[in-house]
């Protein structure tokens, strides 16, 4: 598993979605430095989320009889449904403020895409 590569790509994706949504509301040139600085916390959050919620599924379940494709087919639907519910509930509970909205939308899309990247790494159907 290329965990570092996946976290790197996921952080860039999360940062892009997060800032595109925020900048669609208000754009100011003074915000540009913050975009670059925000990459650090976004990277940390992405790393923690991927390491805590996605990687263990592959670490514990992947073996000779149970490959990544089978893990994806079995656990991806459960993971995404839970993630979507959690994000939607958090938006509903916290607020529909643009920052909150963009945070949870980027979190949802990034985790889902991260799954696809993990299963894409090695295509070997057993």
């Amino acid at each position: 598993m290329h965990i570092l590569g996946n976290i790197g790509k996921s952080s860039l994706l999360a940062a892009s979605i997060f800032w595109i949504i925020i900048l669609s509301d208000t754009f100011n040139w003074d915000m540009v430095p913050y975009i670059f600085i925000s990459l650090i916390p976004i990277y940390v959050i992405c790393a923690l989320t991927i390491l805590i919620t996605i990687c263990p599924i592959f670490w514990f379940l992947e073996n000779d009889n149970y490959n990544k494709q089978r893990i994806f087919k079995t656990y991806f639907p459960i993971y995404t449904t839970l993630m979507f519910s959690l994000c939607a509930y958090s938006i509903y509970k916290i607020s529909t403020d643009i920052v909150v909205l963009s945070f949870f939308i980027s979190a949802y899309i990034t985790t889902v895409q991260s799954w696809v990247w993990f299963t894409k790494e090695k295509v070997e159907i057993k």
Binding site: F72, F76, P77, T80, F84, V112, Q113, W115, V116, T119, K120, V123
Partner: peptide, 11 residues
């Protein structure tokens, strides 16, 4: 998540 699922199937 249908789009991502199909992406996985396609690959």
């Amino acid at each position: 998540v249908g789009y991502f699922h199909r992406k996985f199937i396609k690959q």
